[in-house]
């Protein structure tokens, strides 16, 4: 079965890294995974998008066609990619105002606030989001995600990022119930 993720927001939010970690976790569980990206010429700001396709089978087309999960961390990303969502689930940051244009199933999760207020570092919002995505999708287990996070985040930030991941995993449960 093919599961497609689209992670969207603005450049600098670390969504590419979140996509890489998700793909790596899938591989650690013996699945196939492909991660692609699309971004503007800016180093920060501008629209940014990472996509991950996970499958037990061979993956031919590497991009998301009809995403199972859309993560949107900005209002712009939510509107742009939310309105083209079909059968999949939209996971949007709680700070983003709802739009009538987005008709797909939606859960609102306080990802940015959890990172900034609770963990005190807004830069870990991407890893909080990864925890949310991992739990909601059920594609990878928490221990595998933890290993993948440890492999990929900068040295010295492992503890903070693992905390962010677990917190994301927890708030996902609250959002889903």
């Amino acid at each position: 079965m093919r599961t497609e993720f689209r992670l969207s927001g603005s450049g600098g939010q670390g969504l590419l890294l979140a996509g890489i970690v998700l793909a790596e976790a899938a591989i650690l569980e013996g699945k196939n995974a492909v991660q692609t990206q699309s971004y503007g010429p800016e180093a920060r700001g501008g629209a940014s998008k990472a996509e991950v396709v996970v499958s037990e089978d061979d993956i031919d087309y590497p991009k998301a066609i009809d995403p199972d999960f859309l993560l949107a961390l900005t209002a712009e990303a939510y509107r742009t990619y939310g309105k083209v969502m079909g059968r999949g689930l939209v996971i949007v940051d709680a700070s983003v105002p709802q739009s009538p244009e987005v008709t797909a199933r939606t859960v609102r999760v306080p990802i940015l606030a959890t990172a900034a207020d609770e963990l005190g570092k807004k830069v870990v919002a991407n890893i909080v989001a990864l925890g949310v995505l991992g739990r909601v999708s059920g594609v990878v287990d928490l221990p595998t995600l933890e290993s993948a996070v440890k492999n990929r985040v900068p040295k010295g930030t492992e503890d903070l990022n693992l905390k962010a991941l677990r917190r994301g995993w927890e708030i996902a449960a609250a959002a889903a119930s």
């Binding site: 890489i20 793909a23 196939n32 995974a33 492909v34 991660q35 692609t36 990206q37 993956i59 590497p62």
Partner: peptide
């Protein structure tokens, strides 16, 4: 660009 930036197993 796709081949260069794509990550896969």
């Amino acid at each position: 660009e796709v081949i260069g930036h794509m990550r896969e197993k």
